[in-house]
Amino acid sequence: MSQPSVSPASILAATVAMTGLASPAVAQAMTPVQARQTIAPFYEMLNQPASKDIQALAEQILSPEWKSYASETEYKGRDAFVGQVVGFGKLIPDLKWDVKEVMVDGNRIIVRSEASGTPTGPLFGVPVSGKSFRIMTIDIHIIENGKAVTAHHVEDWAGAIRQLTAK
Rank of each mutant, 00 (worst) to 15 (best):
S51I: 03
L21W: 06
Q28H: 14
T38D: 03
N47F: 11
T38E: 03
P41C: 06
T38L: 01
D53C: 02
A13D: 08
P32R: 12
P41N: 09
A40N: 13
P4A: 09
Y43M: 09
S5G: 13
S10A: 06
P41M: 09
M45G: 04
T31V: 09
V16C: 03
S10E: 12
P24K: 10
L57A: 07
A50Q: 08
Q37D: 13
A22R: 11
A27D: 11
A56S: 15
V26S: 15
A50P: 00
Q37R: 05
Q28L: 08
Q37P: 01
S51K: 12
V6M: 10
F42Y: 14
A29N: 14
P41V: 01
T38V: 06
Q48S: 15
A58P: 13
D53K: 11
P8H: 10
K52A: 08
A50V: 05
A50C: 11
A56V: 05
P32M: 07
P4N: 02
L21Y: 02
V6F: 10
S23P: 00
T19Y: 12
S7W: 08
F42K: 00
N47A: 07
Q48P: 01
Q55D: 15
S7Y: 04
S2H: 14
R36H: 11
A25E: 13
P41Q: 05
I11K: 09
A40M: 12
Q55G: 05
Q34M: 06
M30F: 00
S2I: 08
S5M: 12
S5F: 08
L46G: 09
A35S: 08
Q55M: 06
R36S: 11
L46I: 07
A35R: 01
A40W: 04
R36C: 00
T38Q: 04
V16K: 04
A27T: 04
T19C: 03
E44F: 04
S23L: 09
Q28I: 05
Q34A: 10
T38S: 05
V6L: 11
M45D: 01
A25M: 10
Q48L: 09
L46M: 15
A35W: 00
T31M: 10
E59I: 05
V33F: 05
T31L: 04
L12P: 01
S51P: 00
L57P: 05
Q34V: 03
P8W: 07
V26I: 12
S10M: 02
M18H: 03
V6P: 01
S23G: 05
L46R: 06
M45R: 07
Y43T: 02
S23M: 13
I39C: 04
G20E: 04
V26N: 07
Q28E: 15
V16N: 09
L12Q: 14
N47D: 11
S2Q: 11
A22V: 01
A56T: 15
T19N: 08
A40P: 06
F42T: 01
S7L: 11
Q28Y: 09
L12I: 11
E59N: 13
V6Y: 14
T38R: 01
P4F: 02
S7F: 04
Q28K: 13
S51E: 15
A17L: 05
S5A: 14
L12K: 06
I54E: 12
I39D: 10
P41D: 09
A50T: 04
L57T: 07
